[in-house]
Write a protein that binds this DNA or RNA. Structure first.
Length: 567
RNA sequence: CGGGACGUAGCUCAGUUUGGCAGAGCACAGCGUUCGGGACGCUGGGGUCGCAGGUUCAAAUCCUGUCGUCCCGACCA
């Protein structure tokens, strides 16, 4: 591609809307432009990077025996009503009516459509297993779009669905996708980890997320330093051993704690450690108040809590509700005398003579014990901490931030039951198809790759997803020798590589800056060394500079290309 | 939806406090000089100051409303 004719509007300055590196660089490198909040246009360079990732995905999915198809983005309400998600999915599902006033939505995911397709066509166990996938634009009306392609409302996703005759087959399909995802993200040159995850609204029995390690990641992942356990913090079980309290219980006492409502304030005021305090947090589970008790230094894991309560919506109760339910301002709630279900974290079983709110503004109780109130249920409802042991081997845990680029679910029969997707087994008996679903955020993968591969000068594309492999840079196109050699090299190199040929009449500095910014892995510079018949190769990633003769150029490039492959 | 910030040229931003000619740098067009790390000089084009209403002799500036964008919290690839 000749740069002089390429639609590649790079920017010297960062548009004020961008906050994180990948977003800034994708805007500056002319890859994307925003149309509306969370809705982006992909410019040629950005689309080319996306296509690279898509092609890797395609190759690996096809290798795994999956078949590509393409499903409609506009979907009738009936299917969603049938699965129950028309009501359940919430505002994220963008709904509208057609001219006949029929309800439709934009597809945020395609379990309904694919299951409908398969139930119509699959009759026999002989038709199974089946794995179908597509790479397509999805729309989710996110509450808060963020960080460019990292969380858009419109985004490109690869979604795959497996259909098996039984649980065993479904598990095999699941683990095959697990392997496939490893291959895909490895080939994309990413530093990632597969972690155990919660299944969320998609439902199903178990699931893994593929996380690209990056500090700006919105998820926290927990690793064991001693075994291969890795999980999303939302999912990680707490398996600390709880020994009964050593102290003998004292009797509770009301104390005046004026204006002290946070854990820090109360513990500092009373001179006790946060481990001696019990936080009482009032939630609304599908609109009904529930009190949740955790130790002062622990945090509620709302995913676990929601799962335990089996509710659709879980939110912190607003201050008005807290006032009417506890009779006190926010910050003074306690379990004693509370008229609602009380869920307590297991850690409370090891506590004695602790501090709680008194349900009276500006007062707390000290020396409270479990006998002073009744707990509806004890359960593991807190976030794991670095002090907790690994739930699998008891080893030491490490925490890191990650960007979720892929998620695989073993769905089971949730959708096949709802939509009556059945087949006849070898005995002629009707059975539900067992499903799995598997997603990859394609644009997010590109953004995550940039997040992980950049420096102060710009993007450093991993070779396999670089939009071009070679940036051919004649320093001065008005120098006849340089111009002629550049033209010849462009034609020659294009036979083996994708070449971005900077034939612009710009000063060298401008070209160098743009080359670094857009992050093409190999730069070939024609300039002052051409008099001796030499050209300069610069590797973007390492900064390594190699002077080579024109005759040896292609061999040298071959070698560098091999070195730049991941693993 | 709650909290915070912002909206002036294609981009980055001054100007708003204290109402009085619409600004700078970059980018763009032309000419000249320059040419291996975002050059310099001269000239030029480019604006519904987000939008609507109000106050005023006079509004980018003050008031009311509204729309949009971004950030922090509840959702997800």
């Amino acid at each position: 591609m000749r740069y002089s004719r390429y639609f590649l509007p790079t920017l010297k300055e960062t548009p004020s809307e961008a906050e994180i590196t990948s977003h800034k660089l994708m805007l500056r490198a002319g890859m994307i432009r925003k149309l509306s909040s969370g809705i982006y246009s992909y410019l040629p360079l950005g689309l080319k990077a996306i296509r690279k990732v898509e092609n890797i995905i395609r190759e690996e999915m096809n290798r795994a025996g999956a078949q590509e198809l393409l499903l409609p983005m506009v979907q009738p309400a009936e299917l969603w009503q049938e699965s129950g998600r028309w009501e359940q999915y919430g505002k994220e599902l963008l709904r509208f009516k057609d001219r006949h006033k029929r309800d439709f939505c934009l597809g945020p995911t395609h379990e309904e459509v694919i299951t409908d397709l398969v139930r119509r066509e699959v009759r026999s166990y002989r038709d199974l297993p089946l794995n179908l996938y597509q790479i397509q634009t999805k729309f989710r009306d996110e509450i808060r779009p963020r960080f460019g392609l990292m969380r858009g409302r419109e985004f490109i996703m690869k979604d795959a669905y497996s259909f098996d005759a039984d649980e065993k087959g479904a598990e095999k399909s699941y683990w095959q996708m697990y392997e496939t995802y490893h291959r895909i993200f490895t080939r994309c040159g990413l530093n990632f980890r597969a972690v155990e995850a919660d299944t969320g609204t998609i439902g199903g029995s178990f699931s893994h997320e593929f996380m690209v390690l990056a500090d700006i990641g919105e998820d926290t992942i927990v690793f064991c330093q001693d075994c291969d356990y890795a999980a999303n913090i939302e999912k990680a079980e707490v398996k600390s051993t709880i020994s009964p309290p050593a102290e003998s219980p004292k009797s509770k006492e009301e104390v005046h704690t004026p204006g002290k409502h946070t854990v820090e304030e109360v513990t500092a005021f009373l001179g006790v450690p946060p481990q001696k305090l019990v936080k009482t947090i009032i939630y609304l589970a599908d609109g009904k108040p529930v009190a949740v008790l955790v130790r002062g230094d622990h945090e509620v894991n709302e995913v676990k809590l929601g799962r335990l309560l089996g509710c659709n919506e879980l939110e912190l109760a607003p201050p008005e509700i807290i006032r009417t339910e506890t009779g006190a301002e926010v910050g003074f709630a306690g379990p004693i005398g509370l008229d609602m279900p009380i869920i307590a974290d297991l850690a409370l079983k090891g506590m004695a003579n602790f501090v709680t709110g008194a349900n009276k503004t500006d007062y707390h109780y000290v020396n409270v014990n479990l006998d002073d109130f009744s707990v509806t249920q004890f359960a593991d409802i807190r976030l794991i901490t670095p002090d907790d042991p690994c739930p699998r081997c008891g080893g030491r845990l490490e925490f890191k931030k990650g960007i979720e680029v892929g998620h695989i679910f073993k769905l089971g029969t949730k959708y096949s039951k709802a939509l009556k997707a059945t087949y006849l087994d070898a005995q002629g008996k009707e059975r539900y198809i067992v499903m799995g679903c598997y997603g990859i955020g394609v644009g997010r993968t590109v953004a995550a790759a940039i997040e992980q591969n950049h420096d102060k000068d710009g993007i450093v594309f991993p070779y396999p997803i670089a939009p071009y492999q070679i940036y051919l840079l004649p320093v001065d196109v008005n120098n006849p020798d340089i111009a002629r050699t550049a033209e010849e090299l462009y034609v020659k190199l294009e036979q083996h590589w994708e070449v971005l040929y900077d034939d612009r009449e710009e000063r060298p500095g401008v070209k160098f800056k743009d080359a670094d910014l857009i992050g093409i892995p190999i730069r070939v510079t024609l300039g002052k060394h051409l008099k001796e018949g030499k050209v300069e190769i610069k590797v973007r990633k390492t900064g390594e500079v190699i002077l080579t003769s024109l005759a040896e150029l292609e061999d040298t490039l071959e070698k560098i290309t091999i070195d730049l492959q991941p693993n």
